[in-house]
C-alpha cells in the first residue's frame, strides 16, 4: 500500500508546496456526506462536501460550533468511514487510520502513564509492534480495530535511529529537557507541544489539527502559531486545520474554507496569498477578516 517516504533533511525553504512534493499528500474529498444515528433519529452532519488539498498546502476550516468540522477531520484521518462519497490520499481511498496522516486534538491526550519521551515514541513503537505481529490470523482477528499493518514499513536503519528521531522531535518543539517528566507536570502549552512532537516524529504527510491551540492562553497561542508555521515550512507536509479563531486561520493558512451551520456545506473559499512570515497587523489580513466574519454572519460586529 502506501509506503511512507522518509523526508530528506533538506534545509528549510519558504515555498513548501514546491519543495515538498515527496513528503506531502494530496487529499481529495469528493461529495462526502455523513450522518449519525442518534436516539432521537438520524442526524445529518456533512452535506456534499468536496475539497481538494494540494500537496504541501495549508488549509483552514472555519464554521459555527457543532457544524461538523471535527467529524470531517475524523473521516479524513480514517477513524470512521463516510456515509457517502469518497476521500482519497494521493489517489488511494482512505479506509483506516495511518501514521502518514496524524491528528492533533484540542486536548493533548498524552498518555499520563508515559513520560514525555515515551509519549513521543508512541508512533514508532506502535508501528514496529504492528509490523512484528502482522500475522494473517491476527489481522483477521483485529477487525475494524486493526491499525495499519502494511503502511509505514520502517527500514532497519530507521529503526536503529528511532531514538534519535524522538530526541529530534522533542528538540523541534524545544522540550528536550522535559523528556523524563510526566504529563501532569507540564503546562497546557507544553503538553500541546509534546502532542505536536508525537505527531512530527512519524514524518506525517498530512497533519490534521483540530483546534490544537483552542485551550491555550492567548500569549502561548500566538507563540505556538509562529512555531506551527515554521514547522510546516521546514517539514513540508500538508496541513488541514480546524480553528474557531479567524485571525489564527488568516495568520496560518493559504486557503480558508467556511462551512454553514449543521449540516455543514461549504459556503465560501478564501485564498490568502500573503507570504510568510505574516504580520498580524497586515491591513490585507484585516480586510480578509471582515470578509470571513461576513460569511459567518458576524459582519455587523465589525
Amino acid at each position: 500500500m502506501v509506503a511512507v517516504l522518509r523526508k530528506q533533511d533538506t534545509p528549510a525553504e519558504h515555498a513548501p508546496a514546491a519543495s515538498a512534493t515527496g513528503t506531502a499528500s494530496r487529499i481529495q474529498v469528493e461529495q462526502v456526506s455523513h450522518g449519525f444515528n442518534t436516539p432521537t433519529g438520524p442526524l445529518g452532519v456533512l452535506e456534499d462536501v468536496s475539497l481538494d488539498i494540494a500537496p504541501g498546502e495549508f488549509v483552514a476550516l472555519l464554521g459555527p460550533s457543532g457544524c461538523g468540522k471535527s467529524t470531517l477531520l475524523r473521516l479524513v484521518a480514517g477513524l470512521e468511514p463516510a456515509t457517502a462519497g469518497t476521500i482519497t490520499q494521493d489517489g488511494t481511498p482512505i479506509t483506516r487510520p495511518d501514521p502518514s496522516r496524524i491528528v492533533v486534538f484540542q486536548d493533548p491526550t498524552l498518555f499520563p502513564w508515559r513520560t514525555v519521551w515515551n509519549n513521543v515514541a508512541l508512533g514508532p513503537e506502535a508501528q514496529k509492534e504492528a509490523q512484528r505481529y502482522s500475522l494473517p490470523w491476527l489481522r483477521s482477528l483485529g477487525g475494524a480495530f486493526t491499525g495499519s499493518t502494511t503502511g509505514s514499513r520502517t527500514p532497519d536503519s530507521a529503526v536503529a535511529s528511532q531514538k534519535a528521531r524522538v530526541d529530534a522531535a522533542l528538540q523541534k518543539v524545544g522540550l528536550e529537557s522535559f523528556a523524563k517528566s510526566y504529563p501532569h507536570q507540564l503546562s497546557g502549552g507544553m503538553a500541546q507541544r509534546v502532542a505536536l512532537a508525537r505527531a512530527l516524529v512519524n514524518n506525517p504527510r498530512l497533519l490534521i489539527l483540530d483546534e490544537p491551540l483552542g485551550k491555550l492562553d492567548s500569549l502561548t497561542r500566538l507563540e505556538l502559531q509562529s512555531e506551527l508555521v515554521s514547522l510546516w515550512q521546514k517539514n513540508g507536509f500538508s496541513v488541514l486545520l480546524v480553528t474557531h479563531d479567524v485571525e489564527e486561520a488568516l495568520f496560518l493558512a493559504q486557503r480558508l474554507i467556511i462551512f454553514s451551520p449543521r449540516p455543514a456545506k461549504i459556503i465560501a473559499e478564501i485564498a490568502v496569498d500573503q507570504s510568510y512570515p505574516r504580520h498580524r497587523g497586515d491591513p490585507a489580513l484585516a480586510r480578509l477578516r471582515h470578509e470571513v466574519l461576513n460569511h459567518l454572519g458576524l459582519g455587523t460586529s465589525w
Binding site: 477513524l79 496524524i102 506502535a126 509492534e129 504492528a130 491476527l138
Partner: peptide, 15 residues
C-alpha cells in the same frame, strides 16, 4: 480519545 490517538499513530489491536 486515547484509542483514536493510538490508532492514527499506527497501533494494532494488540497495542
Amino acid at each position: 480519545a486515547y484509542y483514536d490517538v493510538a490508532r492514527t499513530l499506527g497501533a494494532s489491536e494488540r497495542f
